[in-house]
Amino acid sequence: MSTTEIIFWFLSALAIFSAIMVITRKNPVFSVLYLIVTFFAISGHYILMNAQFLAIVNIIVYAGAIMVLFLFVLMLMNLNKEGEPRKNRYLLWSGVIAGGMLMIVIIAALQTSKPEIVDSFSKGDIGLIQNLGMALFKEYVVPFEISSILFLSAMVGAVVIGKK
């Protein structure tokens, strides 16, 4: 087994373990922390695929900003047993159904896809920032700009709500 494979299996195990911990922990703060560990493991996978930009941006955006905001909210919440709202049974069932649907969709998507990069560790250089930039701003410039407009609209919406 080469070093790469060892690292791959280690990261995979870490990612799955911490992902399970995210949904089984009773204390939401621990859930968030395990989710951060999951993000790190995934970033490790990106690095293995030589997608350095993606790896770093994953950490900056998810671990560095979004998860901090999550923690923010969780820490300000009163996590007492008494304060916990009664769980609605319908909500439980609808959650199960929605989750199951999502799983079916993901399985269907994964079945038809042809995983190409996975078996060529750190060979492709599409993930390097220069190539990524070229692809984003030449081939995919219209979807890229449209998604940025989406973010802008979200930002404007947040400001409008904040101004109320």
Binding site: V29, L33, I56, L71
Partner: peptide, 25 residues
């Protein structure tokens, strides 16, 4: 010599928040 050096630094700086937050909470 990572070719995303500056971004790496940003990632690490972003992680610095956790030390403060976890300690405080």
């Amino acid at each position: 010599d990572v070719n995303v050096g500056i971004l790496y630094i940003f990632a690490v700086v972003a992680l610095g928040v956790y030390g403060v937050m976890i300690g405080g909470w």
